[in-house]
Computed example of a mutant assay.
Amino acid sequence: MSLDYLVAQPVLEAERFILRPVRKSDTGLISHYASDERVARMTTSIAHPLPPGAVDAFVARAMAEDRSEDVWVIDGTREGGAELKGIIGLKRMDRNQSEVGYWVAPPFWNTGLASDALQLLVGSNPLKNDTMFASVFQDNPASARVLTHCGFKYLGDAESFSVARDATVPTWTYSRKL
């Protein structure tokens, strides 16, 4: 990994965690949590059951210099916590916009971690976006509350395909001007 990569994707610091780039050593914990059906079903891209090599491929994409998405690990070690509590990312879009995606490991649900991580990402605005978008499945109101808590405004209903559910699922779409 080159030093340019580290400069291009900063480490973002909060009181109880840091957001840091993904590294190969995260593969085991990502596999552990992403293989949980409760996590996979609330994402568009995580399959359940998790196929062999899927997390290795995800980590490789996240670390690639020509990546289209910057991915951070929510790392709680600065406060003596878990090394990986979740994942948050920004997928580049056109017109200086990006799409936010995140998941938090079940042991850390209902702790405010997702809201704090998203607020840090929005406040830091590492890609210098004009607007961030996000969508959540309509059967995941907790993630919708995270978005509205962080200043995202409801745009409308849509649908996205969920690999874990093998189905198209209704979503709510949100945006945040920066």
Rank of each mutant, 00 (worst) to 15 (best):
L178Q: 12
W172V: 11
L19I: 03
E65C: 05
Y154K: 08
W172H: 13
T111A: 02
Q9Y: 10
I18N: 14
A167K: 08
Y102K: 00
G123I: 07
F58S: 00
L6I: 09
A158H: 14
Y154D: 04
V59T: 06
F108H: 14
P49I: 10
T27K: 03
S175V: 07
K85S: 02
S25P: 02
N96Q: 05
G28D: 13
S135P: 01
L113W: 02
L19Y: 01
F133T: 15
E99S: 09
F133H: 15
V100F: 03
N125L: 11
G156A: 06
A144M: 03
E69C: 14
A158F: 14
H32I: 02
I18D: 13
D166T: 13
A47C: 03
I18H: 12
L127E: 10
V11Q: 10
R23T: 13
I30G: 05
H149T: 12
L147C: 11
A142I: 08
G81P: 02
I46R: 03
E37M: 04
S68Y: 10
K128C: 09
H48V: 03
R95A: 15
S143R: 05
G89F: 01
L29E: 07
G28T: 13
E65W: 03
H32S: 08
T111C: 02
E65S: 10
D139M: 08
Y102W: 01
F58G: 00
G76N: 02
F161A: 06
T131Q: 13
S2Y: 03
Q119H: 12
G86F: 00
S162G: 12
P141I: 03
A158I: 09
T173C: 12
A134D: 09
V11G: 05
K128L: 11
A57P: 09
R67A: 12
I74T: 10
Q138A: 15
S135Y: 14
F17W: 12
S98W: 09
L84S: 00
A134C: 08
V11Y: 10
G80I: 05
V122F: 04
V122L: 08
G80V: 06
Y5E: 11
R38C: 11
F137V: 14
Q97F: 06
R23P: 01
T173K: 12
P170T: 11
K85D: 00
A14W: 05
R41Q: 10
P170W: 11
K85G: 06
A40F: 06
L120K: 01
Q9T: 15
N140E: 07
I74Y: 07
G86A: 04
V59H: 04
D36H: 03
